[in-house]
Simulated scan of single mutants.
Amino acid sequence: MFTPSENNALDAVTAVLWKQLLSDLQLIKQQHPDATFANSLAAEDMVLQHAIATHGLNISSFTLDTGRLHKETLALLDVINSHYGIQVTSLKPNQVKVDQHVAEHGAYAFYESLELRKACCGLRKVEPLRAYLQGKSAWITGQRREQSQTRSELQKNEFDSAFQLQKFNPLCDWTLEQVWTVIRTFAIPYNSLHDQNYPSIGCDPCTRAIRAGEDVRAGRWWWEQRDSIECGLHQSPTTATTENT
């Protein structure tokens, strides 16, 4: 599966990581034929999407279309389709519930309180994800340990008690530099917002570009205290809290 051309294109350390990634994904597919990949359309996830699509792994991919994504993020879905010839399933929230929430609290209520922000995340992200994962045995994410303190103990294979299935994080020990080395080496498509100082990208109203010296996730829910940046998609392996991708 790991080709000589790939080996020759990468530096020694990244080549080892890439080879291991392909092996890990193949093993996941063997052990969990119904495993599905959560593509947040971030840089890390495009590395995983490339590996899955170019090595015949036949792992389904999905993304959470919250209804408030940047146009650049949505455009990447069309790029994936044309570049790899695959379709990423878009999970959308229950529009009736969203409309009811907006009617009651306003379109930008998430700026007003942590409770209302989590309610919005719950409707637009957590509920569609929970419904989609129901009955599946495993899912795959692009989380990395260096992304945040709550991910510092992240494991490649862990049981997701929030959604009751196995969860795989095959890039957990990769650095951001290694992610971008692979993207540039293999000319992998990526979200153009990354070129505008958006290292972490979520919904448009809840994400801003970061400033020099800021943490890579400083642009996510920037108006909140930093210990509250969570939404329910990912449960921390070391605490009872959950965090967003």
Rank of each mutant, 00 (worst) to 15 (best):
E127V: 08
S40K: 00
T175L: 11
N8V: 09
A35D: 04
K167W: 11
W174S: 03
P189R: 00
R211S: 13
W221M: 02
G135K: 11
N197V: 07
T238Y: 10
M1K: 03
Y84R: 05
Y108Q: 15
D78G: 11
T14A: 06
F110V: 01
L116Y: 00
I28P: 09
R184D: 15
E44R: 10
N94T: 09
T181W: 07
S228D: 13
C231H: 02
D173K: 01
H50W: 15
Q178V: 02
R130A: 04
S113V: 04
A187K: 04
Q87S: 15
D24K: 14
L25F: 11
T3E: 13
V47N: 00
G135D: 06
K19M: 09
Q143C: 07
M46N: 04
S137E: 08
H50F: 13
I140R: 00
D215I: 14
L233F: 01
L64C: 05
L22G: 08
N197H: 15
P205V: 01
K136D: 05
L165P: 05
A103E: 13
T245H: 06
S148Q: 09
N197P: 08
G85R: 09
L69Y: 10
P205E: 06
G202S: 06
P205L: 01
T36M: 08
H234I: 13
A138N: 03
I80H: 08
A103W: 10
W18P: 09
W18N: 03
D99W: 05
G232F: 12
C121E: 01
P189W: 02
I80K: 02
T239C: 07
S192E: 14
E146C: 06
I80W: 08
F37I: 10
P237W: 00
S137R: 13
L17Y: 13
P33H: 00
V102Q: 07
T181R: 05
A51D: 12
G232L: 10
P33V: 01
Y108H: 15
L69Q: 12
R208N: 06
V179L: 03
T14K: 04
L22H: 01
W221P: 12
L77H: 05
T175S: 15
L193G: 12
T185K: 03
C231I: 14
E6V: 02
L233R: 00
R220W: 12
R145N: 02
G232A: 05
S148W: 12
L27V: 11
W221F: 07
E115Q: 01
H32Q: 12
H105A: 07
A38W: 05
F186D: 03
W174L: 02
F2H: 04
Y132S: 10
Q143P: 07
S192A: 14
H234N: 15
R117V: 05
D195W: 02
H101V: 04
K92Y: 12
I229N: 04
